[in-house]
């Protein structure tokens, strides 16, 4: 059993490395080829885990080959749009100028019910509100509502909104987060000053957020 545990840990590490090498996409954002590769890797890695008689290389080598092929394929896709079209397909317009393109829906095997479900998930509850709807290559749909149904922007309303920049977590669980601090153009010295003003120390802070305009929020640790 110890051997199984050691093998499981090693194969787990190799799968994590493989998935990290493949990139940061979420399951829902995966292209068909990426989803297939992720499923195959999971299956291949599990075989030497459960059968100790099987050499570990029989799990590791196919995983390495699959990940390498996936990375090489994605680089080729990046450089060559025709190749990308062959592997991933291309986005398909389902609704054009408010008109439902039934032949396209048939070719994609999408029913009106499926379309309505996806539209509702995007906050669109009436089919007639949609001006354009595109089925993307990762299986999701993108929607543009008719002009009179869209939410007005600040530009539409002629309002000027101050850019407060990105609000980021600069202290988490009593520790400064250097990358986030750099993002909001400040430094630990300035944050320490703010903490001193609020009569607290970095060790006592659970979360502190900060943005470029200097607005901050401090949540102290519960004792």
């Amino acid at each position: 059993m110890i051997i199984t545990i050691i093998r499981t840990v090693l194969l787990y590490a190799s799968v994590i490395i493989a998935v990290r090498l493949m990139g940061k996409r979420q399951i829902g954002d995966m292209q068909p080829s990426e989803l297939v590769i992720t499923l195959i890797i999971a299956d291949i890695a599990s075989l030497p885990m459960e059968d100790v008689s099987r050499p570990m290389l029989s799990g590791l080598i196919p995983t390495l080959v699959l990940v390498s092929c996936e990375i090489i394929l994605s680089v080729i896709m990046m450089k060559n749009s025709k190749f990308r079209k062959v592997v991933c397909g291309s986005p398909v317009m389902i609704i054009e100028d408010g008109k439902l393109l039934q032949d396209k829906m048939k070719s994609l095997r999408i029913t009106v019910e499926d379309l309505c479900i996806q539209l509702r998930q995007l906050g669109v509850f009436a089919l007639e509100d949609v001006q354009y709807c595109i089925a993307e290559t990762n299986g999701k749909i993108s929607v543009l509502q008719k002009p009179d149904k869209r939410n007005p922007t600040a530009e539409d309303l002629g309002i000027e909104i101050n850019d407060s920049g990105l609000e980021v977590v600069v202290i988490s669980d009593g520790r400064f987060l250097d990358t986030s601090i750099r993002l909001c153009n400040t430094d630990a010295k300035n944050l320490n000053k703010i903490l001193k003003k609020n009569k607290t120390t970095v060790e006592d802070v659970f979360i502190m957020t900060y943005n470029r305009s200097g607005k901050y929020n401090i949540i102290q640790k519960q004792i």
């Binding site: 090498l21 390495l64 080959v65 990940v67 390498s68 092929c69 996936e70 990375i71 090489i72 680089v75």
Partner: peptide
């Protein structure tokens, strides 16, 4: 960098 790692692994 990943492409070089991929080629090395392959």
């Amino acid at each position: 960098k990943r492409i070089y790692i991929a080629i090395a692994l392959l």
